[in-house]
Amino acid sequence: MIEEFKPRTAGARMTARFLAVPPGFTVRGLKDLLYEKAGEFETIDYVYVTDEGELVGVASLKEVFQAEDDMPIRQVMRGQVIEVGASAHQERAAYLALKHGLRAIPVVDCNRVLLGVIPHAALLEIFHQESAEDALKAIGIHHKPREIEDIKTTGLRLIKARLPSLLLGLVGGTLVAYLIGGFEIILKSYIALAAFLPVIVYLSDAVGTQSQTLVVRMIALEPEFSVRRYLWREAKVGLALGAACALAVFPVAWFIQGTVIFACVVSASLFISVILQSLVSTYASILLHDLHFDPGTVSGPVTTIISDLTTILIYFAIAVVLLKIV
């Protein structure tokens, strides 16, 4: 049954060797079953209660052994069960286990028929795998973690894994350098603009990376979330972050250059860039997911290139308007 599910889904990680009984099963009968056949189960952290296959409740072993022997399991079980669909991504199962403090997660079909259980060891493996992949994707390496982490992996293979994203970053850096070169007249007129360029670019990149990381996690763990509500929340957060950064940099720019108008250029550029990057990074990840691409691929050099180009354009455009440079 398990082989029918796609790799990295909850159904592919479950085991069929779990403990399940009908609602009328007594606590005494359950204890006898455990004593006789405990070794046949891969996971016995919980007892799952099924009615004609449908998952209707769950009880921990602690709850079972604290109950009276003649009590039916329906009186011991909890009706609200934390479960995961068989076709759901494996990362959601690990998230549910962490969120609710569970050692195993039941896997059901669309009719809540219990198909299997993801045991504790599998949940730990999923968590490690997904965390490692997210970390590697964040720096532009899209290879399996085990391959990257293995000391036996050849240097040539590691070069192939890391070089493409670096070359892409090189292309992006060249484009940024060419774009800055187009504003040579502005930089000659106000050399202090060059001093604040790294500050604005860095903060915009940082906010974009934060927003992207958070929405990628949301997509993986809560796939049915409201996009409109999330974007609205991100817009408010970006607005607050942009305002805070702008207010912080304003007195610094005023002190260095000595003019209020220059400080307004730096602050306004940072304010707009932070808001823009938070929304662009968020929506780009959502759009990729809707197009059935891995939103994690947006991270790294690609997002950095887009962020740098747009931030620089905003910075110099505002400088031209406010400083009246021709």
Rank of each mutant, 00 (worst) to 15 (best):
E3G: 10
E4W: 13
R8W: 12
T9Q: 03
A12W: 11
A12H: 14
R13V: 06
R13M: 12
M14I: 01
M14K: 03
L19W: 05
P23W: 04
F25A: 08
V27G: 06
R28E: 12
G29F: 02
K31W: 05
D32P: 03
E36W: 12
K37G: 05
A38R: 15
E42K: 12
E42V: 08
I44M: 07
V49L: 06
V58G: 05
V58P: 10
S60D: 07
S60G: 10
D70I: 09
P72R: 03
V76W: 05
M77G: 05
R78Q: 14
I82Q: 10
G85E: 08
R92D: 01
R92L: 10
A93P: 01
A94G: 09
Y95N: 10
A97R: 07
R103S: 15
C110K: 14
R112K: 13
V113Q: 12
L115F: 09
L115P: 11
I118L: 03
A132L: 08
L136F: 10
L136W: 00
I139H: 02
I159A: 15
A161R: 01
R162W: 00
L163F: 13
L163S: 07
L168R: 00
L168F: 07
G169Y: 00
L175K: 03
A177R: 06
A177M: 09
Y178E: 13
G182F: 07
E184R: 12
V199H: 05
L203P: 09
A206F: 06
Q210S: 11
Q210I: 14
S211C: 11
T213G: 13
E222A: 11
E224Q: 13
F225R: 05
S226W: 02
A235G: 14
G238T: 01
A240Q: 05
L241K: 08
G242D: 03
A246F: 08
P251Y: 08
A253D: 01
A253P: 05
I256V: 15
V260E: 07
C264Q: 13
A268S: 14
F271D: 04
S281N: 08
S281E: 05
T282A: 09
Y283H: 07
I286H: 02
H289L: 01
D290W: 12
H292C: 04
P295V: 00
G300Y: 02
I312L: 07
F316V: 01
